[in-house]
Write a protein that binds this DNA or RNA. Structure first.
Lengths: 201, 201
DNA sequence: GTATTTCTGTACCGTATCGCATAAAACAGG
DNA sequence: CCTGTTTTATGCGATACGGTACAGAAATAC
């Protein structure tokens, strides 16, 4: 896949009129709101600002476009997660910050989308196994990020960082689901804050 | 809605060739595997063993059929939940049994469907608000059931039963998501068992 | 300047979808 | 038996869908 962030020697023909990352960013909004099955190629192309054949040439079919979007979304999320976990404060404070940032994204108007992995990829898993695999990989990567955060903290060695990470992830999934189903951000933050000491205990 | 479990005086016209509950049971399998958007009326009618117009006459459109199925599924789940929580054993043992039963259902072959509410209703919530509302109501009812279980137990009053219920629910959602994304039943049961003491601590 | 390569945009195809119109079938009451 | 009423079954229709063919446009290589 050619991206325009890396300096590529201009290839011969007509250059692309779009940037891969920008397209993925715009397409993500549609997939996040409607899900993979619910999003039509027309909506996706319109949101991306280009035509179906261009989408096709660049990404293959709808499933590949969705998976590319999912991976892009996941990479960004893990980036943000690592950044917060590597930042200042106690591990409790950093974990609370992780949840707070996630809740802000999950409850953003107008759609309260929750998390793309939990909220839209999971449903497709039985019908589109590759979507399920990609989603599972991303969740594992998120868990690993949390595990690194706990391992680098001054918390007791038991429970093990991996076990804390599983628990912290579980709470994150639950927040994502409840956000998509309409729970208020303030309620979610209260819940998250109540869980931080339990996870770090 | 007329059900045939209640003894109804035979109405005038041609009697129905199906039982509402049986139809919902069969239709549930399709919705659970493919989701609301992914399930076609042809598949649903075929699974139910009747024709589209009959489905229509009985339930209205696809959304109403889905919501009826969801409520039916939810009522059954809450019934099972109450039964286990009212059963013998310590609250820890009963909670472990709840998770174990849920995991068996969530990882059932061939589709590893997870939970219908978390796995298929959540994704539709932004596009079909009534589905989201029904799902949220059901999750609230499940949480209430767990809360009753904790309130009737001999656990300390803090954390409050409602707080324990929120936590126990969150773990349930996480299990449902991970089941649908392919996590093995044994891993899920290990995770659930590790969480029981934390919830009941 | 010309040829070549690549991308864009319009238009199209076959299929599947939801929902319904219409008529036959099954039963209660008179 | 005949009439009225409700449910089944066949089939239709309009739309939307995913995916592609093809011609024109835009850039570079020679």
């Amino acid at each position: 896949m050619r991206t325009s962030t890396e300096i590529t020697k201009r290839s011969r023909g007509r250059p692309r009129g779009f940037i891969t990352e920008e397209v993925l960013e715009k397409v993500r909004g549609v997939f996040l709101a409607k899900g993979f099955t619910g999003a039509s190629l027309d909506e996706l192309a319109a949101a991306a600002g280009l035509n179906r054949p261009s989408l096709y040439a660049a990404f293959g079919d709808k499933e590949q476009l969705y998976i590319a979007t999912l991976r892009f979304y996941g990479a960004k999320s893990i980036e943000g997660l690592d950044a917060i976990l590597a930042g200042p404060g106690t591990i409790q404070q950093r974990l609370a910050k992780v949840y707070s940032a996630a809740i802000d994204l999950y409850t953003a108007p107008p759609h309260r989308p929750g998390c793309m992995i939990v909220g839209t990829a999971a449903v497709e898993s039985p019908t589109y196994p590759r979507i399920g695999e990609a989603a599972a990989e991303l969740l594992a990567a998120i868990e690993k990020s949390l595990e690194r955060g706990f391992a680098a903290s001054d918390l007791p060695k038991t429970p093990a960082p991996a076990e804390r990470a599983r628990m912290a992830s579980a709470i994150m999934y639950a927040i994502a689901i409840r956000a998509r189903l309409g729970t208020k951000a303030s309620d979610l933050k209260a819940f998250a804050n109540s869980m931080v000491p339990t996870i770090c205990g």
